[in-house]
């Protein structure tokens, strides 16, 4: 079970969001642009510090203002696929994929490079540089890179938003396969209802920093 209960004052508005998500499958954070969805998952990842609240993944607190817990991002075991990919331009695809994996102790790894490469269909890209990849290829590598840290939760922030319809159709099946292949909870941010219908089992609606519908099922 994922528990998110956060408060954060931003310039434009106040985020006061609380929801729970099951420990398996895709849970979507749905809402219009600028509703605070990205801020919420940035707080889950540890990239944005909440003013107060509680963030727990399967009973392990990542942030708990009452008990003074605030793990840095590198200790949260939370994978993050960014909207813009954020592949390291000076490293090959292979080195990008291995960047986080090498930092995880062997006994905690449950994802292997070969399996991810096969699942995402990126074997032919391994020696290339990110600059030479198409948008869809970049996002597949970014997904693989996050997955290879063997995370206990995967965050995806509109991973398809920068892609055209054709590329979307290229990446979407990979994300769906991912949720099945590794029984791993995914928080999936999107403002596109079609994507959510195609991917998510559960959803949370966010508007102006608040959760307006705690939980629904597609």
């Amino acid at each position: 079970m994922i528990t998110v209960q956060v408060e954060k004052k931003l310039d434009a508005f106040m985020i006061q969001a609380g929801f729970q998500a099951p420990a398996k499958g895709v849970t979507a954070l749905f809402g219009p642009s600028g509703a605070g969805k990205t801020s919420i998952i940035n707080m889950v990842a540890g990239l944005l510090r909440p003013d107060g609240g509680l963030i727990q993944v399967n009973g392990r607190p990542l942030f708990d203002s009452q008990n003074g817990i605030d793990l840095p991002p590198e200790q949260r075991r939370v994978g993050y696929v960014f909207q813009d990919g954020r592949l390291f331009p000076h490293l090959s695809v292979r080195a990008n994929l291995a960047y986080g994996m090498r930092l995880v102790p062997k006994e905690r790894r449950y994802v292997e490079l070969e399996r991810v490469v096969a699942l995402l269909g990126i074997a032919h890209l391994l020696e290339r540089r990110p600059a030479t990849l198409s948008g869809g290829e970049k996002q597949r590598v970014a997904i693989g890179r996050a997955l290879l840290t063997s995370p206990s939760l995967l965050l995806m922030d509109e991973p398809l938003a920068s892609l055209d319809a054709l590329r979307k159709a290229e990446v979407l099946p990979f994300i769906r396969r991912l949720a099945d292949a590794f029984s791993l909870p995914i928080l999936y941010v999107s403002h596109d209802w079609e994507e959510i219908e195609a991917l998510a089992a559960n959803w949370v609606v966010v508007e102006a920093g608040r959760v307006v519908t705690p939980m629904g099922s597609v």
Partner: peptide, 26 residues
């Protein structure tokens, strides 16, 4: 791009490692 540094943090690298492996080469 600080976003690359943030990405490296989520991949398990501490601030010093991020500086040496990401920021400095770039």
């Amino acid at each position: 791009d600080p976003g690359l540094e943030a990405a490296a943090r989520t991949l398990g690298a501490g601030p010093v490692r991020v500086f040496i492996t990401i920021t400095l080469p770039l």
